[in-house]
Design a protein around this nucleic acid. Structure first.
Lengths: 198, 198
DNA sequence: GGTCAACCATCCGTCTCGGACGGTACTGTC
DNA sequence: GACAGTACCGTCCGAGACGGATGGTTGACC
């Protein structure tokens, strides 16, 4: 039974149920939407099929409502919790994956009109500012709540990434990419070289 | 025929052929591997099927070798170039997508052993340092070549992102996440608040 | 001319994707 | 308490992505 390979999406489901307690697919959908969905997106349809698979594997327990809508509620079994904890403890030698259409367009724009770049940059600046506002909003609303404190940590990573992207597109729009490079030298030189030197 | 929706992967192929000239799937595979593959990954098998589809649409022209291996070489048609340029000029309101297993594990580690975090951080620091080295290597080798200069621009975005992630995981390992926040205030405060204020 | 490693191409079963569609419950109106 | 309207919720499905396994081709070296 543990020979079955679970996908990251499986663990998102296990993890979400572990954090929230027993949940319906729709509960998960909403919870994912404003948390983990920001760094692991997947179609909501999977939240309706995947839990059944996990239930078949004994990682989740299923209870169905008697009433009309016959909602399915899934809860974590001991086996499920163990599987989740094993995954959390396992090494992760993977680098994150990016899928960035804007970057793609920038890369290929040699072939296109140079005028495309400023508008591309403007759009991206807007995107990243909006996202930063969303993240900052979360920090403001939940930052003080001790219960959700641990979940705020990944927000910091998100914010770092957003600011990095924002800096890039802003510098590009202002035609001053060299500034970026100089700034990086100043900021992380110590950290990087110290650890790289090993 | 232009009613057909092309995927980003289709445009990667069109774009690569536009930059390199006529190419075989294997050419593309290698070219993608050390460039665009870093921010748009996809299985190599698609480089053998997708060009045929694009050829059917009239966006690529196909010529087959007579010799034994019967290599297929694809080149861009006028229609293909027009499609590519149209895509490059079209607005992009999309935000990049991330898929970060490490971040996932960090998010759910409330459920796991706190000891997982330091090793997770150590692994990620290694990943990002390696990737930075790869990128810096590219800059050193091709940075001076005027022909590849335009393609170096996206490297700067990659480096910004890598350093952002590296800063985060380093701060996490050192238990000093607050430093990040303070540093962000100092660096981008002007840019962000000015534009967010609207 | 034989062997080997590197190079190159294809196939295929499984899973993902995301959008369209359709059913269910609640709310307000008369 | 019938009805319409509006969220809320779940499922389906075709197209495409995925990635690993497999097998053929080529040139180099013995």
């Amino acid at each position: 039974m543990s020979a079955v390979r679970l996908s990251p999406t499986s663990y998102v489901i296990l993890g979400m149920i572990a954090l929230r307690g027993p949940s319906t697919p729709y509960d998960l959908k909403r919870a994912v939407g404003h948390s983990v969905g920001y760094f692991w997106n997947f179609p909501h349809a999977q939240l309706y099929s995947e839990p059944d698979r996990l239930a078949d594997l004994g990682l989740l327990a299923l209870s169905v409502e008697d009433s009309g809508r016959r909602r399915k509620t899934y809860s974590l079994t001991d086996l499920g919790r163990a599987a989740l904890r094993a995954w959390l403890a396992a090494p992760t030698d993977e680098h994150f994956q990016m899928r960035d259409i804007a970057e793609l367009k920038l890369f290929f724009n040699e072939v296109g009109d140079p005028d495309n770049v400023p508008s591309l940059a403007a759009e991206q600046i807007k995107q990243h500012e909006e996202r930063i506002a969303v993240y900052e909003g979360m920090v403001e609303r939940f930052g003080d709540d001790p219960a959700s404190r641990p979940r705020m940590i990944t927000l910091e990573l998100g914010l770092e990434m957003e600011h990095a992207a924002l800096r890039f597109w802003t510098a590009l729009a202002e035609g001053d990419l060299d500034r970026l490079r100089r700034a990086r030298m100043g900021t992380t030189a110590g950290t990087t070289s110290a650890t790289t030197a090993e």
